[in-house]
């Protein structure tokens, strides 16, 4: 890493910049890690690994660009590699994943959608939250991922395509199938609770 040319920051400057630009993403990143691994310790490890990788490749990161998408991409690739390791296949670390990844688009693509349930009490809210979580956790990881990226984190299709390394068309079709699958699971639950499936 030392032979890189260009403006050299002191370690203090680099660390300060790193913390200012990337640490604010910690909360969504940890949540993403948790939803992928479904385990707090694994999420913890995955997030640490992601930040260390990001630190090593921080020179490739253009200040002011989409830090959140960049970190999500590194985390998702680390997650895949971790799985390779666990399945005893050779763990090939692909560093090209973090090189040259720039996104000049705006940072947040929030498409705020209001929640439209009629249920008001706290406990019912909790119940719904738990049910949504278990329905989501029961989805295959690829489906879970697109729903989290889109609906929870508000990434645009274009950002998702970059994070996941797939064409936008694949993002769309995967999201569509993922939602159908989630809907099916929640409809079953709604029926078991005595609601008409049309209400969900």
């Amino acid at each position: 890493m030392s032979e890189r040319t260009g403006k050299q920051l002191s370690k203090e400057e680099k660390d300060a910049r790193f913390e200012a630009e990337l640490l604010p993403v910690l909360d969504p990143l940890y949540n993403f890690a948790y939803r992928l691994t479904l385990d707090e310790d694994d999420a913890n490890d995955l997030v640490q690994e992601t930040y260390l990788k990001a630190y090593r490749f921080f020179d490739y990161f253009e200040q002011g660009t989409n830090a959140k998408a960049w970190l999500f991409r590194i985390l998702k690739n680390s997650f895949i590699n971790e799985f390779r390791k666990k399945s005893k296949q050779p763990a090939k670390v692909d560093y090209s994943e973090v090189e040259g990844y720039y996104n000049s688009e705006d940072v947040e693509g929030e498409s705020g959608v209001a929640t439209t349930t009629d249920m008001r009490t706290e406990s019912v809210q909790d119940l719904i939250g738990d049910e949504v979580a278990s329905a989501l956790n029961a989805l295959p990881v690829d489906f879970r991922t697109v729903i989290i990226l889109c609906d929870l984190e508000g990434f645009t299709y274009e950002e998702m395509a970059k994070i996941l390394d797939i064409p936008i068309g694949t993002v769309r079709s995967r999201l569509h199938r993922a939602r159908n699958s989630l809907k099916e699971k929640l409809e079953k639950y709604a029926k078991s609770m005595g609601y008409n499936s049309n209400e969900i």
Partner: peptide, 25 residues
């Protein structure tokens, strides 16, 4: 719309352990 709202409005966020930011730093 309701389905999307269920995910973004009802899925609880997990709380980041306090030690995590410190240990990253």
């Amino acid at each position: 719309k309701l389905l999307k709202g269920l995910v973004c409005g009802h899925l609880k966020r997990v709380i980041v352990p306090e030690s995590l930011a410190l240990s990253i730093k």
